[in-house]
Design a protein around this nucleic acid. Structure first.
Length: 203
DNA sequence: CAAATGATTCGCT
DNA sequence: GCGAATCATTTGG
């Protein structure tokens, strides 16, 4: 499958949040290929979005990468124990991004099971299989995404997104999750997921 | 330098 | 449904 180009990422986060559904996130760790289909995303839309880390044009060392060109990774530690993986969208000085909230494992099942539960894939209980990657913190653990890959170029051979197969699933939009502090932006329907996919974190 | 806090998850009730 | 775990980042003195 084709790797997504720089131009693909140089569009607004709302469009990208929808288009990234069904695409395949790949982490080439060096020893193997970890791959998973993106099934749930959220858009964070620039200075006016109160839910975004860069609301009001706030610029800190952490959010710096968001102000750069599209097609880079924004990975940060949340609640002292989990990482969240985002894709920077838009062009330089357009702070926008897409949070990847859930994926469905495609390649590297045993490593993902090991990273999450310290067990071989075949020993997982059904609940653990679904719990592998059905949340932003969980998928980062499973796919071995951490701060060392923050600001990494997604137009590289190390970490990237591939085009998916022909995609006919229904896309559902809903409210974003975990941003109750964001006043009116709390209710914006900027979360997108593939209807019926069992790895979606919140139905 | 000290204090507050979060784009979460898990376990217990 | 609720609260704890746990720490980098941010903010204010």
């Amino acid at each position: 499958m084709e790797k997504l180009s720089r131009e693909f990422y140089r569009r607004d986060a709302l469009t990208l949040a929808k288009e990234l559904l069904g695409k395949v996130l790949v982490n080439e760790t060096g020893s193997e290929r970890l791959a998973a289909k993106i099934v749930e995303t959220e858009a964070y839309m620039g200075p006016d979005d109160k839910a975004a880390h860069f609301y009001g044009g706030k610029r800190t060392p952490r959010t710096d990468v968001i102000y750069g060109d599209g097609g880079f990774a924004y990975i940060y530690l949340i609640y002292g124990m989990y990482h969240c993986f985002n894709i920077v969208t838009g062009i330089k000085n357009e702070p926008q991004g897409v949070l990847i909230r859930a994926v469905e494992p495609l390649e590297g099942f045993d490593s993902m099971a090991q990273n999450r539960f310290k067990l071989p894939y075949k020993e997982l209980r059904q609940k653990q299989v679904l719990g592998l990657t059905n949340g932003p913190g969980k998928l980062c653990l499973a796919l071995a995404l951490d701060k060392s890959l923050n600001k990494h170029d997604l137009c590289s051979d190390r970490l990237y997104v591939e085009d998916g197969c022909v995609f006919k699933d229904t896309i559902v939009h809903s409210k974003r999750v975990g941003i109750d502090y964001a006043e009116e932006a709390r209710d914006f329907p900027w979360r997108f997921y593939i209807q019926g996919n069992s790895y979606v974190s919140v139905k």
